Computed example of a mutant assay.
Amino acid sequence: MTARVLIVEDEILTAMELEAVLSERGFEVVGIAQDAASARALAAGCRIDVALVDVNLRDGRTGVSLGAELARDRSAKVIYLTAHPLPSHERPAGVVGLLTKPSDETSVVSALDYALCRHENLLPPPPALQLFH
């Protein structure tokens, strides 16, 4: 079964690059959202296995709460993408971790692979992924 990925990123060129990389690696990108409302609309219509969520979106710093919501309500594996440190009080339960932007394609793909397999202990966490405990 192909893993389905939602990209939540307000920088469209970054989002399109992520989409191309993930598609080339066999992931199915279900859509790109630039704000929390668009992400919720995309998530409502389909199964999402993994969500890559930027912390700062077009509608403000809504990525943290959106990621927590997708993990809790949609059972998605969520990985935050951000260029800024994320304080410990903004690291909700259920979210896998964080990749610092910019991230190379190997780090992104390794983080997604890890998120999808982490409960089976099949892969060690990639070095670039800051895990939330």
Score class of each variant (00 low, 15 high):
97 G>Y: 08
64 V>A: 03
46 C>Q: 15
69 E>T: 07
47 R>L: 14
73 D>C: 10
62 T>P: 02
97 G>R: 09
53 V>P: 03
46 C>Y: 01
53 V>Y: 03
65 S>Q: 14
58 R>P: 05
97 G>T: 13
79 I>V: 15
83 A>Q: 08
98 L>Y: 13
59 D>M: 05
62 T>S: 14
100 T>N: 14
99 L>H: 07
56 N>R: 14
61 R>C: 08
76 A>M: 08
87 P>M: 06
87 P>D: 08
64 V>Y: 01
61 R>E: 12
63 G>D: 01
54 D>T: 00
77 K>Y: 11
56 N>F: 12
74 R>P: 01
78 V>G: 10
76 A>Q: 03
52 L>Q: 03
79 I>P: 04
60 G>H: 09
56 N>L: 14
74 R>N: 12
60 G>Y: 12
52 L>Y: 07
74 R>C: 12
80 Y>G: 07
88 S>E: 14
85 P>Y: 04
91 R>M: 14
87 P>V: 07
75 S>L: 13
100 T>G: 12
59 D>I: 05
54 D>A: 07
68 A>R: 11
91 R>Y: 06
75 S>P: 00
44 A>W: 00
82 T>N: 03
76 A>D: 03
70 L>T: 00
47 R>P: 05
66 L>R: 02
77 K>E: 15
52 L>W: 02
61 R>P: 04
84 H>I: 09
62 T>D: 03
79 I>Q: 06
94 G>V: 08
84 H>C: 09
91 R>I: 11
44 A>C: 07
70 L>N: 01
61 R>H: 09
43 A>E: 03
56 N>G: 03
59 D>V: 05
79 I>N: 04
77 K>Q: 15
63 G>H: 01
101 K>N: 07
43 A>C: 06
92 P>R: 10
74 R>W: 13
93 A>H: 12
57 L>Q: 02
99 L>K: 09
